[in-house]
């Protein structure tokens, strides 16, 4: 097991290193110049040059790469070109929006998907099952940003129950902030819950047909009892895997929803920073997002290996 963990850790480090090179190079070849963007159309060339010097853009690429990566290893990401504040601070501010949003969406997803999937599996081929399968099929097909637009039309513009966008910040107390996150979380959760409910259902059905569950039933347990006592726990393994994937998707993939609701999250930060050529922010946030996806995958792999020792040998 230790050997397996070590090998996977080495792989992890290599992947992260490769990612840092790719991200850095992509930023290097990006056309456009942060100094030009800062100074606008009336700037004189010597002013732009002075600002470039001040930002340290004139130093060799290799030096900047080394500085950036060693900085990151120490938890220091540099200073944003446009905001003139430390990138770590910016990210910390934005994580306060993105993380609660992702968690809220994941919680909603789970709360909807697990019971719904279980009901569908327990009453296989009943009207309830067919209804659930039909609804989840539609849920998967709905673009989340479109669903978000409808939610805004209904709950913000027509009913005025919830804000249509923007984020009041946590300083104003948890309630206004949570209110601002409700609609985005629902919009994110619907397609994810549909996917997870289907996974839950088929995973349960698969374990129900396994021998030991059949044995349990033969011993006189009812279908519901067999499901609760034996199948549920085993069925949750693939469900947890999918949830892990969904979480990293929710953390990194909320750019569109953050745009619809104008939430100051990580996704919007990347978007804005690219437009302003604040490459130092882009590099660091992209690396963080990529690292979080890779880490979640790593944890999922480990969890798998704990559950199923055969897997340790495969990689």
């Amino acid at each position: 097991m230790l050997d397996f963990v070590l090998r996977r850790l080495a792989g992890l480090a290599m992947t992260l290193a490769a990612a840092s090179v790719v991200v850095f190079l992509a930023m290097e070849v990006l056309p456009g110049d942060p100094a030009e963007v800062m100074l606008g159309t009336n700037a004189r060339p010597d002013t732009v040059a002075a600002l470039r010097q001040q930002m340290g853009l004139n130093r060799p690429a290799f030096d900047r790469y080394v500085e950036w990566t060693t900085g990151m290893l120490h938890g220091e990401f540099g200073t944003s070109y446009t905001y003139s504040t430390s990138v770590r601070e910016l990210v910390a501010e934005r994580v306060q929006v993105s993380l609660p949003l992702a968690l809220l969406a994941l919680a909603l997803t789970t709360l909807i998907a697990i019971p719904v999937g279980a009901i569908a599996a327990a009453r296989r081929n009943s009207a309830a099952d067919l209804g659930i399968m039909g609804a989840t099929q539609i849920g998967i097909s709905v673009p989340n940003f479109w669903f978000a637009m409808l939610l805004v039309l209904l709950f913000s513009i027509t009913l005025r129950w919830l804000p249509a966008g923007g984020f009041p910040g946590w300083a104003a107390g948890p309630w206004p902030a949570l209110r601002a996150l409700v609609l985005p979380a629902v919009a994110l959760a619907l397609p994810q819950a549909s996917i997870l409910a289907r996974v839950m259902r088929s995973s349960l059905l698969e374990t129900l047909s396994d021998d030991y569950v059949r044995t349990a039933r033969a011993k006189g347990l009812s279908a519901g009892q067999a499901l609760r006592r034996h199948a549920l726990r085993n069925a949750l393994i693939p469900v947890l895997t999918i949830m892990g994937l969904q979480f990293s998707f929710l953390l990194a993939g909320t750019i569109i929803i953050e745009n619809v609701f104008y939430l100051p999250g990580l996704g919007r930060l990347v978007f804005q920073a690219i437009n302003q050529r604040d490459v130092i922010v882009v590099k660091s946030v992209v690396m963080l997002l990529v690292a979080s996806v890779i880490l979640v995958n790593f944890v999922v792999d480990l969890a798998y290996a704990v559950v199923d020792p055969r897997l340790r040998k495969r990689r």
């Binding site: 637009m149 805004v152 913000s156 005025r160 804000p163 966008g165 619809v260 609701f261």
Partner: peptide, 17 residues
Amino acid sequence: KVIGDSQASFAALMAGD
């Protein structure tokens, strides 16, 4: 208040935010 989205600014005004 920074509200960049047209739809959100419409709703914010209407709601008195």
